[in-house]
Every structure is written in structure tokens, then in C-alpha cells.
Amino acid sequence: MIVRLLLFAVARDIVGCNSLEIELPGVPNIGAVRAELVRSHPRLAPLEKYLMFSVNARYAGDDQLVRADDEIACLPPASGG
């Protein structure tokens, strides 16, 4: 299954683009998305534990399953305000 992942802030700068398509086997969860993102972009490894994810604009834990048409995003710690 191919999922599209939106990237923001430092994650976008490190990867070098606004979004990525990631291919994952079976019915993947956010943990699998996270692992594949870091495997394919090792410079993200030191930041991995700080990265949050969302599915369809809601924060999502590693156990949450994802579908091909979900909007998934990788969110570094927020610094608004």
C-alpha cells in the first residue's frame, strides 16, 4: 500500500520536500510509517522519538491503522504562539 505523508518544519527541511509517498506492506499503522520514514531518511533518526503524527488532521498514536486515502502528516514539536 502506498501512503502519502505530509512533512513540516525541520522534518521537511531534512527530507527536502513537502510530502513523500511511502510504500508499506499489509495494513500498516503509524508505527510502520514512522519506521519507514526514518529508514529511508536516516538523518531523521536522532529526532524520531520527538516526531508526532496525525491522520486526517488528528493526532495519532503508533497503533493507529492507516488507509491509502488517509492524509498523514509528520509533526515535529509545535512552537506557535
Binding site: F8, A9, V10, D13, P46, L47, Y50, S54, Y59, A73, L75, P76, P77, A78, S79, G80, G81
Partner: peptide, 26 residues
């Protein structure tokens, strides 16, 4: 808001360098 709203700040320093602000992140 500062904790949960997905908004990010980038400092663009006067020396020309820039830096994302991600609290808690190295």
C-alpha cells in the same frame, strides 16, 4: 495552543542563519 496546535516558528537570525524552534528536541 503552544503545545498542541501544529504551528512552527523558525528564527532567521541577523547573521543569515536560520533555525526551527522545536521545544525539547535536540
Amino acid at each position: 495552543l503552544k503545545e498542541v496546535v501544529p504551528i512552527w516558528k523558525q528564527e532567521q537570525w541577523s547573521d543569515g542563519s536560520s533555525q526551527w524552534v522545536h521545544p525539547g528536541m535536540p
